[in-house]
Design a protein around this nucleic acid. Sequence first.
DNA 1: CTCATATACTGAGCATACTCAGTGAGTGCA
DNA 2: TGCACTCACTGAGTATGCTCAGTATATGAG
Lengths: 222, 222
Amino acid sequence: MTSKPSKSARSATSARRGKPAVAPKTSRAARRAGTREQVRVAALELFSSVGFDETTTQAIAQRAGVAAGTVFLYASDKADLLFLVMHDRLEHAVARSFETLGEGPLIDRLMHVFRGVFAMYDESPKMGAAFVRALPGATGPNAARVNVLTFAFLERLGALVADAQARGEVASDLQPLACAQNIFGLYFMALLGWLTGHYTLDTALEPMLRVSLELQIRGFRT
Amino acid sequence: MTSKPSKSARSATSARRGKPAVAPKTSRAARRAGTREQVRVAALELFSSVGFDETTTQAIAQRAGVAAGTVFLYASDKADLLFLVMHDRLEHAVARSFETLGEGPLIDRLMHVFRGVFAMYDESPKMGAAFVRALPGATGPNAARVNVLTFAFLERLGALVADAQARGEVASDLQPLACAQNIFGLYFMALLGWLTGHYTLDTALEPMLRVSLELQIRGFRT
DNA sequence: CTCATATACTGAGCATACTCAGTGAGTGCA
DNA sequence: TGCACTCACTGAGTATGCTCAGTATATGAG
């Protein structure tokens, strides 16, 4: 390269955290966090408006005001950018769902939680579809963070089962985490069925997932 | 395959655009079926030995003795080549599993079927991993054929449940197909957990899937 | 302060999945 | 048979995900 013209382009947002060539000397950590956030927001906006497949990593870099290679300093590949975006949304949706949890039978509490998560996906179903498609077996730092979130979600589902156990609704000899795994599996299949286009949101959530969960709670036996 | 000479003749000689000088005079339909089979076998060999991600579509074309663009006449994209390969294997594995099905309680018959399918995946776990990763929401002609197979599999699972119902093992007011959907979901989660590397074959099949299915059959209730 | 090191970032270049206008052999009709 | 048409096939071209040697700058030691 010769002179350095790209600097000024980035400073569209530099009113907030100045980055002009001469003065401010922001710390490396702060700069890095800022860049990461710019990439995250750019990816979010493009994925949710244009779609995952239709968005190029070049476009994300351009919108974030960084070079093409920079986005791969914050995600191992394009799919990992999707996980970077979805992590916060997932975390927030799950937190909200459990905050607003009332009392009642296990099935109702589960449906309340899943309704909240489905609503989050419904804000951008196309991005959600790309997400669940890319999730199985994904590697990369942001995928790992999502996996941590998923495992925490599983444990919170286990806690709901344990609650039901304490109230005598669920047999006391069962392991709550094993029950939660089955519940999660049925939830994930419903999510997959919806987002990959086999069902609509309403049919996937209300008749289908509920029936699945009731069938799991009830069992097959005579 | 028979048409080996045509390939070497084409690439070695000077004929430029010309097809083999000696006219083979095979019918178009037969030629097309032959080409498709060559592509399928080439993809199978490369995917199972080298791996899906490590195989280029160019390499498949070269091994099949066709031009680079030809493989996309038989699959909409690279993932669809994987479905082209897996369709026959899946079909065969399921058929075998149901042929060798004995009598007994539902859980044992289910485990017998799933054991057979898992064994098929175990012949090339890396290819299996790529397959289950690409499957959700896949489009393309070969993906559609695999979906047909999956739905047929679901119905055969439903038939097993109906059998158990007739023997009084399963409550008579349940819909066999709804039960089969839950069973399939638990099977698919176990498959995913294994092939994406979270479990080994043995732990995924024998403790994990069996526990899941027993928990489904039994239910949560006191 | 000066200098050496670490590291966030750059962007041209590479690999490869996929496209499409062109070609000629098979097909069916007269 | 001769001829117009169809269609399987070709392969150079294109788009884009991702790499990596190079650059500028914050950091920390002396």
